[in-house]
Design a protein around this nucleic acid. Structure first.
Lengths: 212, 212
DNA sequence: TAGATTGTTAATCGATTAACAATC
DNA sequence: TAGATTGTTAATCGATTAACAATC
């Protein structure tokens, strides 16, 4: 079950499918499924068996001819590929409903996101305790990041505040920013920014509904 | 500024970019930007000008040679293309933090999602009032959908409940389901299912962080 | 071993980019 | 008009699928 060594060339299209593989494999492990062929596995995911085998081949040889894939092993490998076994210290800025939803979602902790600080600018929210963490005043954000060596910042503020928060995060030295504000944010190129636009899914749905 | 008529052939890759176009154009209209060339516009979006022009060409001719694109007009056209001017009656099932976040997000209303019913199975949540709507017992869901002719169901329940809710929605006659549960749900093929997996963005971020 | 299924190559298909004539 | 920029075609590039030899 060897992971390829050396610099990998992973096509962008493959990279985008990795989170899906992670999700399905996790669920299959939970279900206790031991073994699946590329055909059975890809069938559940709605892709071709050819594509599944081709994709996995970027990273190594995880199957066994004549037998298929051991799900537990493949899940392990996928965790390694994605770097999920690593833990990232994170702060979350903007403790509204979306922020609270993310803090409470155990899936994020499982993926390796450890939220150690919550921040907001609203006096009514500052001081609240959520999941064992007290919401701090956003003025303390910059200092906190440096002190605690925070690596990832999650932005769940309203659109207007997003860029300002991103600047504080960047100045504090985070390596990555996960942004939920609809406005895209800019940061220096060495900081990795991942934008999640929840509303996009709705437009996809509407477009498909209209097509019919 | 004519929209092409007749059956459009829209490549899947183009379709996936439409929500991004909508987002940027909406922001530019708000900013009051009147005119941009394909180069300026695509530059902001991080794509090539060639691609932008090629994409728009699937739907019609929206620019003016030697001048560029009138942003307000292009935004209008994009709304039409996406079917955003239409209003969809919706119910939301699962009034936890994520559900509340969606209910309060004005962007969804702007996109045409009109939530007229909230449902949950938790006795502590049933009866709460959110945004002028009272949370109902999930047992009333099926009846409500039929009575009100609900078209879209939003699922923000825990993973375990998602499929059961989807079945009720389908039986009630919704046309589309927007699912946030990490578990993919199945429904008969005439119902359009859009899955939004919030956790995927985090894995993308981790993968890129690991690459560096 | 014989059957099954992988890993991998080659062929096809689709998406992106480059280039430029058309035209505002 | 001259300059700018589109719409659109052709060329390139990348991703998916098909097929099969390798092998468990």
């Amino acid at each position: 079950m060897p992971l390829r060594s050396g610099p990998l060339i992973v096509p962008a299209a493959v990279m985008k499918r990795l989170p899906m593989y992670y999700r399905y494999l996790h669920a299959l492990v939970e279900e206790g499924v031991e073994r699946l062929s590329s055909q059975e596995l890809s069938g559940r995911m709605g892709i071709s068996s050819s594509q599944l085998r081709q994709d996995l081949n970027c990273f190594g040889e995880f199957g066994q001819q004549g037998y298929g894939y051991r799900i537990a092993d493949l899940y392990q490998a996928m965790c390694q590929i994605l770097g999920v076994e690593k833990r990232y210290k994170a702060v979350l800025v903007g403790v509204g409903n979306l922020g609270k939803a993310l803090i409470n979602y155990e899936g994020f902790r499982r993926r390796g996101l450890v939220v150690i600080g919550l921040f907001d600018s609203d006096e009514n929210i500052i001081g609240q305790e959520i999941n064992g963490l007290t919401v701090n005043n956003i003025r303390k954000l910059g200092e906190f990041i440096k002190q605690e060596q925070v690596e990832v910042g999650v932005i769940t503020t309203p659109a207007k505040a997003a860029q300002e928060v991103a600047d504080i995060l960047a100045a504090g030295g985070v390596k990555g920013i996960w942004n939920f504000a609809p406005q895209p944010i800019t940061a220096s190129p060495e900081i990795i920014v991942e934008n999640t636009h929840i509303g996009d899914g709705l437009l996809n749905l509407f477009y498909k509904l209209k097509e019919k």
